[in-house]
Amino acid sequence: MDFRYRNIRCREQTELNDTPQNRKRLSAFLDKIEAEILLGTFDYQATFPEGSALKKMRSVVNRVTSLNSKPSLVEFARTWIDENKVQWGKSYVKTVTNITENRLLPYFGNIPIDELTKSQILQFRNYLCEIKKSNGQPFSPGHINRHLKILRAILNEAADRFDFKSPHQKIKPLKVPKSHIQPFTAPEIRLILDNCREDFYEYFLIRFFTGMRTSEIDGLKWKYVDFDRAEILIRETISDGESSYTKNDFSQREIHMSDEVFKCFKAMHARTGHLEYVFVTKDGKTLDHNSVTKRVWYPLLRLAGIEKRNPYQMRHTAATLWLASGESPEWIARQMGHANTEMLFRVYSRYVPNLTRNDGSAANRMFKNVLEK
């Protein structure tokens, strides 16, 4: 018998003698097979338990089943990471991988990605709210939102790829409290610089007067220090000891050196100018920001009797000093690596009343001028 089933050619033999009667019997049997194939009721394995096409038939069944089934959330998340990590920074790859392996996998297990419900996502959010960190504090709303942002991106891509509706729609992020900005005052800056370790004097002064991020100053190489133009070229950062691209395209910028910053770089060049990086440890290795914060920065604040604040406040200090001095907001935004002045005024405006005229004095003078004329 010679017929096709599921686009596979099937040739089956019998042990019957070749007689007209047996040919007639097989012809009727073949008609029955073709009728069942047409009706969709034909079972090849039941009809031919030792059939020659059985192996091919099973392969087709497995392939169809694979095509029709959806991967688990964790399986697809790993695929999504592999496909996208080439365009991410190394620190972000680490963040996404940690969230996937340490949060998504233990919670959702092998649930098919198209079976995840909105209720399960909200329950996952509640679960994150109940987790306590090593210091006993719960996760911050911003940290929880990062988990849900990654989950949403995974589900949106899967929904587009496998044609189902993402259950993450209409789930709003948790409200994040406004960041508490605590820039240092001029007396505090002097206290810090007067009491800091001699080998960190230039490091802290440059941070106070340039607004560089931690990853930017720790990853600064001498080739990006332009003494002729008195500029710092922000082109690379360092994270976990590895050099990488800046936070975003706007972070690629040139920072003007003030006279004091210029002097500090000259002093540093005499010490580390023969090395690749500007700021290094005693044995020539790049700085580890966690070590600097815990072993140098916080002890320094305690010694100076200044309220504990994270090193990022040095960046905020630079912004408020520039604004208070009357520099152009557009220029300051470029120095900070902001896309525009929106963040500048939203975050720092309360520290510069003379610039924003929050006291109404500018309008008061204008009104008087109008009446006098």
Rank of each mutant, 00 (worst) to 15 (best):
1 M>C: 08
4 R>N: 12
7 N>Y: 10
11 R>G: 00
12 E>F: 08
15 E>A: 07
15 E>M: 15
15 E>Q: 14
21 Q>P: 08
30 L>S: 06
31 D>T: 15
34 E>N: 13
50 E>R: 14
52 S>K: 12
53 A>H: 07
56 K>P: 07
58 R>W: 07
60 V>Y: 04
60 V>E: 05
62 N>R: 14
72 S>F: 02
77 A>F: 04
77 A>W: 04
87 Q>A: 09
88 W>T: 01
89 G>A: 13
90 K>C: 10
93 V>W: 10
94 K>R: 11
98 N>T: 12
101 E>Q: 11
108 F>Y: 00
114 D>C: 10
115 E>A: 05
128 L>F: 00
132 K>E: 09
138 P>K: 00
140 S>D: 06
148 L>A: 01
152 R>K: 11
154 I>Y: 04
155 L>D: 00
155 L>W: 02
160 D>R: 14
177 P>C: 13
179 S>H: 07
181 I>M: 04
190 R>H: 06
191 L>K: 11
192 I>F: 00
193 L>G: 03
197 R>F: 02
197 R>P: 02
201 Y>W: 05
206 I>V: 14
206 I>Q: 05
211 G>H: 05
214 T>M: 01
216 E>Q: 07
217 I>N: 02
220 L>Q: 01
221 K>W: 03
221 K>R: 15
223 K>Q: 13
223 K>Y: 00
223 K>S: 13
225 V>T: 06
227 F>C: 03
232 I>S: 10
232 I>W: 04
235 R>L: 02
238 I>C: 01
243 S>T: 15
245 Y>C: 15
245 Y>R: 15
256 H>C: 12
256 H>R: 15
260 E>G: 07
266 K>H: 11
267 A>D: 08
269 H>R: 13
272 T>H: 05
273 G>R: 10
277 Y>F: 12
285 K>L: 11
290 N>M: 05
293 T>M: 08
293 T>P: 04
297 W>E: 03
299 P>H: 02
307 E>P: 09
307 E>Y: 06
311 P>Y: 03
312 Y>H: 12
313 Q>P: 11
316 H>Q: 09
318 A>Y: 10
320 T>C: 03
321 L>K: 09
322 W>C: 10
323 L>Q: 03
324 A>W: 03
325 S>R: 07
331 W>D: 09
333 A>F: 01
333 A>G: 07
336 M>P: 13
340 N>Y: 00
344 L>C: 10
349 S>D: 01
350 R>C: 06
356 T>P: 00
359 D>Q: 12
373 K>G: 15
373 K>S: 04
